[in-house]
Write a protein that binds this DNA or RNA. Structure first.
Lengths: 329, 329
DNA sequence: CATTGGCATGTAATCGATTACACATTTCAT
DNA sequence: ATGAAATGTGTAATCGATTACATGCCAATG
């Protein structure tokens, strides 16, 4: 591997001058610069980033922590992040917690030791140890998806999105609505979306029954199973609509309904959240909410870049959403 | 930030001993080890990876180069890679070429300068400069998806998969088959899949017509558009089946067909390749080929790890596939 | 008792860059 | 003409780890 010393020798200058030429810092004569650049071209020299990073404390790498690598939401967010960061010459160091909140903390510290310049966390839960760790590592930090105290957070407006969706169902004449949620450990998806649903139902005189409330695990299968449970438990007194807090679970629910001969939306309306690409192509196409995940990723990256430039930021940013009305309602 | 020197001071030993304790190399007394570990615990010390990597030439990071970050195929492969690497304590440095083959080369060199221990490339094309660059950087290297000369490659058996799919259509009674492919610059998807299609059609007496052959760009929209073109060009002499080389294009084609009132599969059978999650939930469900992408990622990671341990490997590995018969045929 | 070898630790070089500081030369304003 | 400022380059310290080599101690061996 060629080093800066090799370049220096071949160009008959000291490595200081080479460094200056490469980084456009300090004075370098036109003559020396040309000689150096020519040799750099010829050899394909690239500075050793470990050495550089050791000395400068900056690495040009941003750590990204995902709850799951294989969901559409994550992918879209990462895509947005990458689009912005790549343009600025940053690389992404990717980690996947597999929904394990211990790993979240472990990875934050690991990324710190790897000298990343900043961290973007796709958060799924909130706890004190996490907050403490983020404070400890003292790095430019950005959270997406949950409102972490004392951390710059980009949050989806889960409450109002969910409220809008519920309202829409009610105004289409549905008063008996089943609900498929997820664990309460997820404040955004598990708590806020359900809370808004309950609030609107109460306010608008909707009917909420315990056995119409299911709890899935984000998977298509769990949507299917929860739908099955709900229908079995309801007997004659059936809901006329089902609201699943994610598209995948909504699609699972649709599968079961279709299998059982229900017509959608005539016999049962179905809605989800997430605007997954699937939602558009299932039959009937699924009414859902678009959270503009890619945009969120881009914005997160931009905010992080601003932080790197020491700009002071607000602490909380609300993201927008959009209701997509399709044929399942 | 606490360094190895801080630990050494506080434990009353030299940093050499701390290093030995941390890496389990050389002799360290039980006493010293305990003192050191206690302080490491207390301070949450983590070795500076840049320094470590500068000295040892190893970083514990594997570079992964993707053609697109946002496709299901990429995601699944990365997922497989990550599963295996994370277990061994490796991190992934992710890059996205946005299908630009210049960036492929640029990123390979960039990753080298970042001291990655190895590179996995999800390849989409083959050219001399790429091969040369791979040779130049002289790193443990693994390609997935294209057969790169002199590089350990994991390749999908595109030819036989495509042949099987075509054969299946013919044995279901389809002799007039439209084909939606992609650019020939992609040897696997663009060339092999089409070649197999043509070979089988010829061998089995199928009918191939130029205006039944479309060329899309992997997107759902292009599938839709190519289908439209094909139907418009065919007039009364229509094919009875359409074979799109990716699920997304097949789904686009289905959209158009449904819009035009065709029944699938009665009026027109449709098949794709990729076993995307969507393929299962569109109506009718799509007949396709599963390439086990995640498995491919895992295997790639395992092979790369073997390379890191200096094991000699074969150069070419064929991956298996599976035909999934569903309702669209 | 002298020698050998295992154990424990430390000294200092090293990896490849950046950068504070020093020094020399040239340019420029007064 | 002269001192100040601008320009160009080099020396050597530094970042935080690993590791070759040296040293000292102690027990075992013959």
């Amino acid at each position: 591997m060629t080093t800066i010393n090799d370049i220096a020798k071949r160009a008959n200058v000291s490595r200081t001058t080479v460094s200056r030429a490469l980084n456009n810092s300090g004075y370098v004569s036109e003559d020396a610069r040309k000689r150096i650049m020519k040799i750099v071209e010829e050899t394909g020299y690239m500075p050793n980033q470990s050495a550089k990073s050791l000395r400068t404390k900056r690495s040009g790498v941003i750590g990204v922590i995902l709850p799951r690598l294989s969901t559409e939401t994550s992918t879209r967010v990462v895509n947005g992040i990458n689009e912005v960061l790549a343009k600025e010459g940053f690389q992404i160091l990717l980690t996947d917690t597999e929904l394990d909140s211990k790993k979240e903390i472990e990875y934050i510290r690991l990324l710190k030791s790897r000298h990343v310049d900043g961290i973007i966390l796709l958060a799924t839960n909130v706890n004190d140890e996490l907050i403490q760790t983020i404070r400890d590592v003292d790095l430019p930090f950005l959270a997406i998806g949950q409102d972490l105290p004392e951390v710059t957070s980009l949050v989806y407006d889960d409450y109002h999105a969910s409220a809008d969706l519920t309202n829409m169902l009610i105004h289409k004449g549905h008063h008996k609505i089943a609900f498929i949620g997820v664990s309460r450990e997820d404040p955004s998806v598990g708590v806020k979306r359900e809370q808004a649903f309950r609030d609107v139902m109460e306010r608008e005189g909707g009917v909420v029954q315990d056995h119409w409330m299911g709890t899935g695990d984000f998977s298509i299968d769990s949507g299917y199973e929860e739908m099955k449970k709900i229908l079995r438990a309801s007997g004659k007194n059936r809901p006329s609509a089902v609201y699943a807090v994610t598209d995948r679970m909504a699609i699972g629910a649709m599968e079961y309904l279709k299998e059982q001969g229900y017509r959608i939306p005539e016999d049962m309306a179905v809605v989800g959240i997430g605007a997954s690409s699937m939602s558009q192509y299932v039959s009937p196409s699924l009414t859902t909410i678009d959270y503009f995940n890619k945009k969120a990723g881009q914005q997160a990256a931009e905010l992080l870049l601003a932080k790197l430039k020491n700009e002071k930021l607000e602490q909380k940013f609300e993201l927008t959403y959009r209701l997509i009305l399709r044929d399942s309602v």
